[in-house]
Amino acid sequence: MAKNSFLDWDVVANNNTDAGGIFIGEGCPPSNINNSEREIMAQLKAGLDGKVVYAAKSGNYTAVLNDNNAVLRFTAAATLSLTAVATLVANWHVIVVADGGDVTVDPNASETIDGATTIIIPNGYSALIISNGSAFFTNKMWSIVQPKATMAFGQCRLSLSGANLLLSRFSGQLLTINGVHYSIPSAGITLAPTALTPSTLYYIYAFMSGATMTLEASATAPAVDATTGISIKTADATRTLVGMARPVTGPAWSDTVKQRFVRSWYNDPGVSLFSNFTANRATTSTSYVELNSEIRSEFLNWSGEVVQANAAGSVISGAANGQNRTSLAFDGTTTEPGGSQATLTNSDTVPFSAQAMKSGLSEGYHYVTLIGLVSSGTGTWISDVDGRRTSISGRVSR
Rank of each mutant, 00 (worst) to 15 (best):
W265L: 08
A84V: 08
G101Y: 01
L160A: 05
A320M: 10
P337E: 05
R239W: 01
S36W: 06
R281E: 08
A152K: 03
G339A: 07
A195N: 15
T349R: 12
M1D: 10
V52Y: 09
N139P: 11
S376R: 06
N91R: 14
R239V: 01
E294W: 04
P30G: 02
K3C: 01
W92R: 03
T326A: 08
D49L: 05
V242L: 06
A206M: 04
L361H: 05
G188V: 01
N324Y: 11
S297Y: 07
T256E: 02
A77T: 09
G50Q: 11
D49N: 15
M244V: 03
F261K: 09
K51A: 13
A320T: 14
T345H: 10
T194K: 08
L128S: 11
G47T: 12
G229Y: 05
A84R: 04
T112C: 00
D331G: 12
T197C: 01
A219Q: 12
N108C: 10
Q173S: 15
V12Y: 10
N34D: 09
D255I: 08
S186I: 13
N35M: 10
S303V: 07
N16F: 03
N346P: 04
H181S: 13
V89L: 12
A235V: 13
S317A: 13
L291W: 09
C156F: 00
Y54W: 12
A70S: 15
G100E: 08
V103M: 03
T378E: 07
Y365I: 10
T194L: 11
L201M: 09
R157W: 06
T62K: 14
A152D: 00
N178L: 02
Y203P: 00
T176Y: 03
A98Q: 02
H181R: 15
P198T: 09
G27C: 02
V374E: 05
G229A: 05
F330Y: 12
I204K: 02
Y54Q: 11
T256H: 02
R389K: 14
F23I: 02
F170M: 06
L48I: 15
Y266E: 12
R260M: 09
R38D: 08
I119L: 06
L196D: 02
